[in-house]
Write a protein that binds this DNA or RNA. Structure first.
Lengths: 241, 241
DNA sequence: TTTAGATAGTGTAAAAAATACACTAAGATA
DNA sequence: TATCTTAGTGTATTTTTTACACTATCTAAA
């Protein structure tokens, strides 16, 4: 008897907890015009009206977190086959005006050139903004961005994630500039090239830049064989750590 | 009119989402008897009856995630001032028999000697188990443990987190053994000592081990001054990344 | 008290990795 | 053909990592 009551009490207590919502917010990084950018929307919710916000959505009852992130990427940008990794959960009490919404942050890496071709940017009124221009954001999105950028920096040093941001053919100056944009510090050209070349992960494609008003740089592509050998885990699509 | 309907539809759709529960699960690491251990319970929920489980609880409506983790640590072990860091969120659909429960994993580092003194272990029927002995666990807790251990390994290399696991006075062989237990690989004694000594983060306390049947090792303690200078962020209590 | 057993404690040389640094080469343009 | 702009290249130094073997100190047993 007493036990049954306890169980009922317990059940009610538990039910009381199934009142939160889970959302996923994606920090979508792109590298364009020699700058690191993030895809943002203009927030249409009080009290953050007009402020830049990340792309996110509530998690549906029949999808896991990775699936939700993948769906958001697809619905909001039309992109599939995206590199995604979870950053962490954010659950401050006052983080969302709608109620208790715990959000799981992901960062995504996309090739702006491929994405741009679909004209998706205007279609979904998403807007690329440089990292530097994002001072104030809706909700706790600035905090989420900071944590994501921090993780991206660590990952970029550890793994050749830059391949997820660059077009198929790229030059070494472009690659170095990408590093400098993400890490926000200048790198020595010769030491940088030495390190990249030791990885053996890129190969010349036998072409050069065109339409540049100076000496054109050689173009490279990822060495798929070496990539599969050393970093096969990066090829899971979508990648989830 | 149409707009109002849309909003209603939208609201219903949103309400439909506020049906998930958020939990926090803690991987509580301890170092004892020269082994890395995790504090576990015996699961009392079908279909995981009897399997080891992590210490966790639903997040209350008036606490954020870090607070929930801190509370769980306190309620279940009586410990305060714990080193805690979020690992990541786990949200597979079928991860909990009770319904949709997304859990946020934390790892905690505690000094087994201090904890043991309170006799909390038996009081809460928590049980220390070695990492190696945990083959099968309740829910997705094995996955959570693996992710937490992976993070702990990275952190241990980067920061002097071992100080959160060792007693106030410790020897260099103990310290090395801790590293070997966590990283699961042997280390060279001389190189290890060289590296530690270069950090300047420990100092001799002028005592030696007692009651050992061989040459006693010198005892060391953390150099608090150096700690504050170089790693002040580790002192936030509870630490949350 | 001597000896055996166990673990603590110590230094150096070689290899690898990181850093600092400045000029020539190639193409575009005036 | 001269100038501008960016691409591309090598070496020397320092720092970090690795490999490796013997002596010192204490306990305990003979």
């Amino acid at each position: 008897m007493e036990k049954a009551e306890n169980i009922n009490l317990h059940m009610r207590e538990i039910e009381d907890h199934f009142k939160a919502a889970i959302s996923v917010d994606c920090v979508i990084f792109g590298y364009d015009e020699s700058e690191l950018k993030v895809l943002t929307l203009d927030c249409n919710m009080d009290p953050y009206l007009g402020l830049p916000s990340l792309l996110g959505d509530l998690v549906k009852n029949d999808e896991n977190l990775d699936e939700a992130a993948t769906r958001i990427l697809y619905q909001r940008t039309g992109i599939t086959d995206v590199f995604l990794e979870q950053v962490k959960a954010f659950g401050e009490l006052d983080r969302h005006p709608m109620g208790r919404v715990v959000t799981i942050a992901y960062y995504a890496l996309i090739k702006v050139d491929e994405y741009g071709q679909n004209g998706m940017e205007s279609k979904h009124n998403a807007k690329w903004r440089t990292i530097g221009s994002l001072k104030e954001m809706a909700f706790d999105h600035k905090k989420i961005l900071n944590a994501s950028l921090h993780l991206l920096r660590k990952r970029l040093i550890e793994y050749p994630l830059w391949m997820k941001l660059l077009p198929e053919h790229f030059s070494l100056p472009e690659l170095q500039n990408l590093f400098e944009a993400v890490l926000a510090k200048p790198l020595d050209k010769r030491n940088f090239r030495k390190k990249i070349s030791k990885l053996g992960i890129i190969k010349e494609v036998g072409k050069k830049q065109e339409d540049v008003p100076h000496r054109p740089a050689k173009l490279y592509a990822v060495n798929e064989k070496k990539l599969r050998e050393d970093y096969s885990f990066l090829l899971k699509n979508p990648f989830v750590s």
